[in-house]
Design a protein around this nucleic acid. Structure first.
Length: 632
RNA sequence: GCCGCCUUGGCUCAAUGGCAGAGCAAUCGCUUCGUAAGCGAUAGGUUGCAGGUUCAAGUCCCGCAGGCGGCACCA
């Protein structure tokens, strides 16, 4: 049987035992397809494709091919587990972004990652046997009979319709939609990664199963590349780097409550300084509202009823108080402190608000998920006719600020949920305005239907870091609820009181979390403007070159550079190494030549080149690096 | 909160149930040095906390706390 790929004809190589598929060997590239794809459809191993069909290879780098490979591998893993633990029952085992998992009920057996080599060995054994994946379709009743010993699968089957498809590989059979690779020999380059508990059907009321995460790649090289990325992510872990670089610490006395150390404080202050510059220029007015306010306020806002489990409360003179989990109510009190004309709007109230939320203990994670953090918050009160322009204005701020960090992003628009408040027509109109702003911004955007808050639709900004991970930071949320609850008004052209709407928006989200993301994104090597120490000065010999080195330090200090003299009694190589370990952007070496020429020799972090320039030239250079917020 | 694992000097880690150790960092000397670790000495510990088993516990058991991997949560 012949098929066509990129205009060339190929003979299907492996066309045995009723399988239409699926080994195609390109004699030139030696590429092996794992399956084939005609148009958008991935053909099942079992189905017939028309002779001469135009196909495209489905390889690991192809998203669909990767998914199929990993899905098949999850069956392979389940089969191996069944061999080793005959009583194991299986839940769901799908492919995911970077691999796959399977949820397993091991009964009384305890399985840890120490058992991984054993399972992997069994998987390798089955892989070598090249057992074909065979598809079968049976009726619902038959399916219930086949899986009668596994109540998880039974529960799942009962929710399905029509004939049920199964895949069988040797002594293992699983409920599955497919498609799969032709046989187990296609699954060679896999690794079990981690183990964790996961609720059956994702519901915390249900029993927890043991989830095993793993990954499978088309070649050994691809697997190795992926494992290298995992290593890199681990090496750049902000919890480790944050400790090594003296950025923050955590204490058992306050789980989830980070301490910022001097180096971290420099980064935090620089971020806040930059944020203020931008926002003041954009007409935002900065305020500060109290950390703790009385119960009545939180009742007015609705938090007391809907968010109490996450709030820290206390009594003051027998009255209930709560530590703020959000800044909105405070901002609205500021708004209500004076009368507002329609001409004053939009009124942009900005605040670095330090909020506290009682997050579940198991959710805490370094700076990523904490119980006390600083929101770079703003509440914008505006007229309904101003929403579109204001959203675009906010998005231009986001654009400028994210670009400085080299973070690209895409947007998610969340629309009206079932339990919404306000008029439907206003929701429709607002959603249209937000969608239009997305289109105008030139950024990719997705719609998440029904995921808006009850009080309004929102835009979430998902940032992609240097290691391919996605973080949600910025958000713009429209709110018709709080201005109403607080009885906010402005006076319109006719002298009538009208209720404004509100936009909640953050750029960083949580300053702490954003710093965590930046630590990992930069691998701890901050651009000059954020680096706690921007320049280190190393005299070759403290006696002979110390005086001039001090002069260099003074000149840099005078120019506002965070500079440190290292004249420790150590060899130059040792001090230079320290400067690199500390990831200092610029390291200066001052020796005889430099003293003679009133010059400096500098070296940029991570580079081996040394450049000699006159002192004044270097001062100008580093100042420009700082001002430009450039990497170096 | 749930499941599993982990916790030994400031940091990274070692120690068949049998005398708690190393490297880095620190301190003090020696060395005065041109691009990633010079040499030596000193100091540093109630092995997370609290119980239990044992002649003997860092090691085994129970509880708690904190952390890690996920899940759930993130009006």
């Amino acid at each position: 049987m012949k098929i066509v790929y990129q205009g060339k004809e190929f003979e299907l190589e492996d066309h045995s035992n009723g399988f239409a598929a699926a080994k195609i060997v390109d004699p030139e590239k030696k590429n092996k397809a794992l399956a084939y794809k005609v148009g958008e459809k991935i053909f099942d191993m079992n189905s017939e494709i028309p002779d001469g069909s135009e196909i495209s290879f489905v390889m690991g780098e192809d998203k669909d091919g990767f998914e199929m490979l990993n899905h098949s591998c999850s069956h392979l893993m389940a089969q191996a587990i069944k061999h080793l633990y005959p009583n194991a029952l299986f839940g769901f085992g799908p492919a995911i972004e970077e691999g796959f998992y399977y949820d397993v009920d091991f009964g009384d057996a305890t399985v840890t990652d120490a058992d991984f080599p054993k399972i992997e060995a069994e998987m390798k054994k089955i892989s070598k046997e090249a057992i074909p994946f065979k598809r079968k379709e049976i009726s619902m009743d038959e399916a219930l009979e086949v899986f009668k010993d596994n109540h998880y699968k039974v529960e799942h089957i009962k929710e399905l319709e029509g004939p049920i498809s199964l895949y069988e590989q040797g002594d293992f059979i699983d409920l599955c939609r497919g498609p799969h690779v032709p046989n187990t020999s296609y699954l060679k380059h896999f690794k079990l990664l981690s183990i964790a508990g996961a609720y059956w059907r994702g519901d915390s009321k249900n029993k927890q199963l043991t989830r095993i995460y793993a990954t499978c790649w088309p070649t050994e090289e691809a697997l190795k590349n992926y494992l290298d990325i995992l290593e890199r992510r681990k090496a750049n872990d902000h919890r480790r780097l944050g400790k090594e670089l003296g950025i923050f610490m955590l204490s058992d006395y306050g789980p989830g409550l980070p301490f910022f150390l001097p180096n971290g404080m420099i980064i935090k202050n620089e971020l806040m300084k930059y944020w203020r510059e931008i926002h003041i220029a954009e007409g935002y007015k900065e305020v500060e509202t109290p950390t703790m306010l009385s119960r009545e306020l939180w009742e007015t806002s609705g938090h007391w009823d809907h968010y109490k489990e996450n709030m820290y409360t206390t009594k003051v003179d027998d009255k209930d108080f709560a530590i703020k989990p959000m800044n909105c109510p405070g901002a609205l009190l500021v708004y209500k402190n004076s009368l507002h004309s329609y001409k004053d709007l939009p009124l942009r109230i900005a605040e670095f608000g330090h909020v506290h939320r009682h997050e579940a203990s198991g959710a805490l994670n370094g700076l990523f998920r904490v119980r006390g953090f600083t929101q770079d918050d703003s509440h914008i009160l505006l007229r309904r006719d101003q929403i579109g322009d204001e959203v675009k204005r906010i998005m231009s701020i986001f654009d400028r600020m994210y670009q400085v960090f080299g973070l690209s992003y895409y947007i998610v628009l969340s629309t009206r949920p079932d339990d919404y408040i306000g008029e439907k027509s206003f929701w429709d109109e607002s959603e249209r305005i937000l969608a239009e702003a997305c289109k105008d911004s030139g950024h990719e955007y997705k719609i998440n239907p029904g995921d808006g808050a009850f009080y309004g639709p929102k835009l979430d900004f998902k940032l992609r870091d240097s290691m391919g991970r996605v973080w949600q930071c910025g958000t713009i949320q429209l709110d018709v609820n709080l201005p109403h609850r607080f009885g906010c008004t402005y006076i319109d052209q006719n002298g009538e009181k009208v209720e404004p709407v509100m936009l909640h928006r953050v750029v960083f989200g949580s300053v702490e979390r954003f710093i965590g993301i930046l630590i990992e994104h930069y691998g701890g090597a901050f651009p000059t403007w954020l680096a706690p120490v921007q320049c280190k000065v190393l005299p070759v010999n403290a006696q002979a070159h110390g005086a001039y080195a001090s002069e260099v330090v003074k000149a840099l200090e005078a120019a506002g550079v965070r500079v440190k003299l290292d004249d420790d009694n150590e060899k130059l190589g040792y001090r230079l190494r320290n400067a690199q370990v500390e990831k200092v952007p610029f390291t200066l070496v001052i020796g005889e030549k430099e003293v003679q020429n009133r010059a400096v020799t500098y070296r940029i972090y991570g580079q081996k080149d040394q450049v000699s320039v006159p002192l004044e030239e270097f001062v100008a250079l580093i100042c420009k690096s700082i001002a430009d917020k450039a990497r170096y």
